[in-house]
Design a protein around this nucleic acid. Structure first.
Length: 555
RNA sequence: UGACCCAUGGUGUAAUCGGUAACACAACUGUUUUUGGUGCAGUCAUUCAAGGUUCGAGUCCUUGUGGGUCAACCA
């Protein structure tokens, strides 16, 4: 194979346009969210594509809110969307734009369409219109209002704008073809009467354009060259192109790609909103949500998400991405940037019987072995430590490299120890304390003992240990496709164990200085980050993702 | 029973004028390692089916099969 980088099909189409000089060598894309929910990982794919295209071909990307349905839209969503895009590392061209900025222009476009005999006002009810639509195999029926004069249509449409008719009384429709085999072309609705307070235009308008008469027109107004959207809009394209031609506006090209589907979750904003409203999650930014804000809170980095979007590619076939692919991207990035720290999630006390009583020494630990620039840090070591309960077995199998009676391990950055005994709670059989001796000449970095220890354990000095709360997350749904069962509500597949609390775990003192947005690796356990629920009295850490664990897999 | 789109390993994406299936993830080996992490090396597909065109087909044609989208005054 050549060393030429392979292009996705959208890039191929863009390059064709570039070569043909279709848009005078320009590439201007747009990301057009509706402000009716928070952005999710599927949007991230679209953001990376649209902004990536512009970046690659020296173009620009507009951020345009597709705010034509006032009843579901809100400024809270506008703010979160802007924040999420910035956090992902993208910059849109100039100020953010709004389809609602074009309401006046859109109205004029509609008038022109009517004047050209290409649109009419229909007095039928929504039900009647639906009935006259026909079915996929059966042509629709012309509306009795279809042949109104241009003058009457003009007068009626103006009346709609002026609030002379109640909501739903009339609608503006394209005069296209009620017999079209493409259902979307059977005289689609263009404008509806809806008295609702708009988050930006307030009560100025009582008619609002529908998607088909707002999106493409906004693209044209902004002289967008390539309007990249998901596959479900493919069937709209003939209408998109027809309106451009009819209106004589900028000929933006619509290109459709397959949306992202991720195992064990779903991307429907409507369904995600239900989870929020029903309090199945703590909010749009719950760390279990597939939202950008949820993933950020969970500890996923922007680079990880970008790399993920890069890795999954762009194509036209339906796809379901494995969760492992996302988690790989997260681990890959965090491995490079996360500071290694000591944290014991399920503590059991380890007493080093030959260590000087009450002595505390500071041992050095690398901040990140993957990053030579990251330096070292000192952590307190003493004769009383917490280690992980699962790192000790009373009667371990041969392949268990951790602690057991008579067995030796290295305490990471400290000394090699040999287990000499342990205590058990007679009632519960639980280990209450482990005893060991250490080898003073085995100190990390200055080991002259000659002793070989197969395993290395993480630990925290009891006296200096900081108690923290840990939140462990699992997939939100137990079914790979929770929204894919026509006879069952997606909430039936909610995983009851998706959130687990560890009320008291112990971490090294340096973590008292942890800041929101920092990434840590709790050595041998996983990646963690401080949660916004933390207070000065209680620190809360989220597990971003566990480390790969080939031992747990075998066991 | 309509229109449109799609079909390459367990998953995702490549193969750009038809030239002999590549990359990543997952899985499994082995190796390195003061994280059972990381790194490194290796194993794992004749491209939905059947015909056709061609010296040669994942790529072109035909017919099937399977999947998706469309009948919101949502986007």
């Amino acid at each position: 194979m050549s060393n030429k980088e392979s292009l996705n099909f959208v890039e191929i189409e863009v390059e064709k346009d570039l070569e043909a000089g279709t848009y005078a060598g320009r590439v201007h894309t747009r990301f057009p969210p509706e402000p009716n929910g928070y952005l999710h990982i599927g949007h991230a794919k679209s953001i990376c594509l649209n902004f990536g295209l512009a970046k690659k071909y020296g173009g620009k990307t507009n951020l345009r809110f597709d705010d034509t349905n006032p009843v579901t839209e809100d400024t809270e969503y506008v703010d979160s969307i802007k924040a999420d895009i910035k956090w992902l590392g993208f910059e849109w061209e100039g100020q953010e734009l709004y389809a609602s900025d074009y309401f006046e222009q859109l109205y004029e476009f509609a008038v022109k369409l009517i004047q050209d005999g290409k649109a009419y006002v229909d007095d039928s009810s929504a039900e009647e219109i639906a009935k006259m639509k026909g079915t996929p195999t059966q042509a629709g029926l012309n509306s009795p209002f279809r042949e109104r004069t241009i003058e009457e249509n003009l007068r009626l449409f103006e009346g709609m704008k002026n609030g002379e008719y109640p909501d739903g009384a009339r609608v503006l429709r394209a005069k296209y073809d009620m017999a079209s085999p493409n259902m979307l072309l059977r005289d689609p609705n263009l404008y509806r009467i809806k008295r609702a307070h708009h988050h930006r235009t307030g009560d100025k308008w009582c008619i609002y354009p529908l998607y088909d008469f707002a999106h493409g027109q906004s693209d044209a107004i902004e002289k967008i060259t390539h309007s990249v959207c998901t596959l479900e809009f493919k069937n709209h394209r003939p209408l998109y192109d027809w309106l451009i031609e009819s209106l004589g506006i900028y000929p933006t090209r619509q290109i459709e790609f397959a949306r992202l589907n991720l195992e064990y979750t779903m991307m429907s904003k409507r369904k995600l909103l239900q989870l929020v409203n029903d309090k199945h999650v703590s909010g749009w930014d719950d760390p279990r949500m597939p939202t950008i804000s949820g993933m950020r809170r969970r500890g996923y980095s922007a680079a990880a998400i970008r790399n993920f979007c890069d890795r999954i590619g762009i194509a036209k076939r339906d796809n379901v991405i494995e969760y492992a692919s996302l988690e790989f991207s997260v681990r890959e990035d965090l491995n490079k940037v996360a500071t290694r720290v000591m944290g014991v999630l399920d503590p059991v006390k380890l007493v080093i019987t030959n260590y000087p009583k009450d002595q505390v020494e500071f041992v050095e630990i690398e901040n990140n072995p993957e990053d030579p620039e990251s330096g070292v840090r000192s952590i307190p070591f003493s004769g009383e430590l917490y280690i992980e309960r699962e790192d000790f077995m009373e009667d371990p199998p041969k392949k268990f490299f951790r602690l057991g009676p008579e067995r030796s391990v290295r305490l990471k950055s400290g000394y090699i120890i040999t287990c000499t005994g342990f205590d058990k709670d007679p009632d519960t059989d639980a280990i209450t304390e482990i005893r060991c001796t250490y080898y003073p000449d085995s100190k990390s970095g200055a080991d002259t003992s000659g002793i070989k220890a197969k395993g290395t354990l993480h630990w925290v000095s009891v006296k200096e240990a900081v108690p923290v709360e840990i939140r462990l997350y699992d997939r939100l749904f137990s079914d790979p496709n929770p929204a894919g069962h026509p006879d069952q509500d997606f909430r039936e597949f909610l995983n009851p164990d998706s959130l687990r609390y560890i009320p008291t775990a112990y971490v090294e003192p340096a973590l008292k200085e942890a800041k929101l947005g920092q990434h840590f690796q709790f050595i041998r356990k996983g990646y963690y980050c401080l949660d916004q629920d933390s207070s000065s009295e209680k620190l809360v850490f989220n597990q971003t993702v566990g480390l790969k664990d080939s031992w747990a897999k075998k066991g």
